[in-house]
């Protein structure tokens, strides 16, 4: 318990270091573009593939499991849309991205630490936490809404493929379900959640990598810790945000 409180304090102090004014804005913006490309744009294929398949699977599950004369046939499309908008494209997608982006950040920064690259920056007088971590946090937080919207869209397309290419549900019913009882706030709710989750993923992973001590083995452990910690925090934040934003 005391260790956790100490770590939380250390994490807060780390964030204070990170959120200082960059030494050179030109260098910061150059790094920002690089990180948006590396962390955000490079994640698009993964997001598209997973969303497409999960959208299709949700559609199949809904069709198979919601079988009742009392439930209208368009419910499949409606349920697929609600699941994607409310949970999958924000929470589940960010849990998956915690694995890709979180481990990438923790191992990159951890390697920089054990090979003394961070010490080299500190000795030169560069605020290493700010220089390395801030572009990653800002870059991913800025780009993650795009990933969220793409995930929503391609998830719905995945469901549509099932309607189009199987006989489980008609396209008309699926499309009607998608358009029924639509609440625009759910899209914003998903986007707000992903922004918070993106902050958790990048800052926790950077924290785990930044304070690595030792060698390659510890870098691996830091990478694992980053994924586990950020996943737990994402789920915790999900409960809090759902309570705050939907009630």
């Amino acid at each position: 318990m005391i260790k956790s409180i100490k770590n939380f304090g250390k994490y807060c102090l780390f964030l204070v270091q990170v959120f200082k004014r960059p030494d050179k804005w030109r260098v910061f913006f150059k790094s920002l573009i690089f990180e948006i490309d590396k962390l955000g744009v490079d994640s698009i294929p993964l997001v598209l593939i997973i969303s497409l398949f999960i959208g299709a699977v949700i559609c199949i599950q809904m069709t198979i499991n919601i079988v009742s004369p009392l439930i209208p046939s368009y419910s499949t499309g409606l349920a697929t849309r609600e699941i994607l908008l409310l949970e999958f494209s924000s929470t589940m997608m960010c849990l998956i991205l915690a694995g890709k982006v979180g481990s990438n950040i923790a191992s990159e920064i951890g390697t920089m630490r054990v090979t003394e690259q961070i010490d080299a920056m500190d000795i030169m007088g560069v605020n290493s936490a700010n220089y390395i971590v801030l572009p990653k946090i800002i870059g991913f937080v800025l780009f993650v809404p795009v990933l969220c919207v793409l995930s929503m869209f391609f998830g719905l397309i995945g469901g549509w493929f099932i309607a189009e290419f199987t006989t489980m549900i008609s396209v008309e019913n699926y499309n009607y379900g998608l358009q029924s009882f639509f609440n625009e706030w759910y899209v914003w709710y998903g986007i707000i959640k992903t922004v918070v989750f993106a902050f958790i993923i990048t800052s926790v992973a950077a924290f785990c990598g930044y304070y690595v001590k030792g060698g390659a083995l510890e870098v691996g452990k830091a990478s694992t810790n980053a994924v586990v910690s950020s996943s737990i925090l994402i789920l915790l934040a999900d409960v809090i945000l759902t309570k705050l934003l939907l009630q």
Binding site: D23, T111, T115, E116, Q117, A120, I123, M124, G125, V126
Partner: peptide
């Protein structure tokens, strides 16, 4: 202060020129 580390501590994602340019760009 200039510092030469045991393992050189060069930035992997920068070229030789980029590494030497780094302190100049920053300061």
């Amino acid at each position: 202060i200039g510092m030469l580390f045991q393992g050189s501590a060069l930035f992997d994602n920068e070229t030789v020129l980029g590494n030497v340019m780094f302190p100049l760009t920053m300061f």
